[in-house]
């Protein structure tokens, strides 16, 4: 037992030391790649979900290697772990949802979005995320979520602000929804066991829950904006200043990958099995997002105003032009 505690202590010290070194030892992504023949090692911090399939497809198709980028993916627990990785220079790029990026910006984290990541497919009832309830639940529409316990993966983020918007649009009282936090993969069981009344789920959890008979009562992303930009790839302002050439190449390669993924949805589905542990049968049924190459600024303005309304940015306002353009 003592050894375990000691191990924890060592881990804490190591983390603290790593954090301490962050400012001095941050690299800017290997060697400068001004001459095209040299390859640059680029690490991208991602969450292993459907949304990042274009990145893997682009790697497979050689969109990155032909631009001299040797791509490496580093899996992280969640968006909150990716941002420190990018700021410290451990990752050159990261994948994050847009509300998190705005939140980071209002707190003064030096990051900037460089290329679109993923957007809603705009289909109400068949979107990439949805609020699901049990088959025999009394909740018939988003309006009925008021006063109910709703699970989201992260509080004060894109999940709860857009779910509130769905409730608002359906004529319910969004302030009455009781949110609580739970990882996506535990939601189908919690919903089935009655520990929560509803759960806002992403894929593959949503497909699994539907397989257990759950009903989708709201599609918060599509209901907020049918073109909502959900997540983008971002980098640190430091790398952007020191190596704009690399950022440009990454953006180009990523844009090509997004186009390819949009045109080849079956390949996008297939590549999922290489970096996730999603069951092959579930993969066939998954709802795919859309992968436009451009960020939709109007949708982000709406998302930002939702965040402001819910007070998640404190007394600040995100500067969308500085962050996304």
């Amino acid at each position: 037992m003592r050894r375990r505690v000691l191990g924890l202590a060592i881990a804490v010290v190591t983390v603290a030391a790593a954090a301490g070194c962050g400012s001095s030892s941050s690299s800017t992504g290997g060697s400068p790649s001004s001459d095209g023949s040299k390859t640059t090692q680029v690490t991208v911090g991602i969450i292993p979900i459907v949304d990042v399939a274009p990145l893997y497809l682009g790697q497979k198709q050689g969109f990155f290697s032909k631009r001299g980028i040797d791509l490496k993916m580093e899996l992280a627990q969640g968006g909150a772990a990716i941002v420190p990785g990018v700021v410290s220079g451990q990752f050159q790029f990261g994948f994050s949802n847009t509300t998190s990026l705005m939140l980071a910006q209002t707190k003064g984290v030096p990051i900037k979005s460089v290329v679109n990541g993923v957007a809603t497919n705009g289909k109400v009832g068949a979107d990439v995320t949805g609020v699901a309830v049990k088959k025999d639940s009394s909740i018939k529409s988003a309006k009925d979520l008021a006063g109910k316990k709703v699970a989201v993966n992260t509080l004060q983020n894109i999940g709860d602000t857009t779910v509130r918007e769905s409730v608002r649009k359906a004529g319910g009282d969004p302030t009455k929804v009781k949110f609580l936090e739970m990882p996506f993969d535990q939601m189908p069981a919690a919903l089935d066991g009655g520990q929560v009344d509803a759960a806002w789920m992403g894929e593959p959890a949503l497909t699994i829950a539907k397989g257990q008979g759950a009903r989708v009562v709201a599609s918060p992303f599509a209901e907020t904006d049918p073109k909502l930009t959900v997540a983008t790839y971002f980098t640190s302002t430091k790398l952007l200043k020191e190596n704009p050439g690399l950022v440009k190449k990454f953006t180009e390669a990523m844009t090509e990958s997004l186009t390819y993924a949009s045109e080849h949805p079956d390949e996008a589905r297939q590549i999922l099995t290489t970096y996730t542990k999603i069951d092959a049968q579930v993969v066939q049924k998954l709802t795919l997002p859309s992968w436009p190459t451009k960020i939709d600024m109007a949708s982000l303005e709406k998302l930002a105003s939702l965040g402001e309304e819910d007070g998640i940015f404190g007394d600040k306002k995100p500067d969308l032009d500085a962050l996304f353009s």
């Binding site: 954090a19 301490g20 962050g22 400012s23 420190p84 700021v87 410290s88 003064g108 984290v109 030096p110």
Partner: peptide
């Protein structure tokens, strides 16, 4: 003293 003029966001 080690962090007095730290500009590192995380420290």
């Amino acid at each position: 003293f080690a962090t007095a003029d730290s500009t590192d966001f995380y420290v």
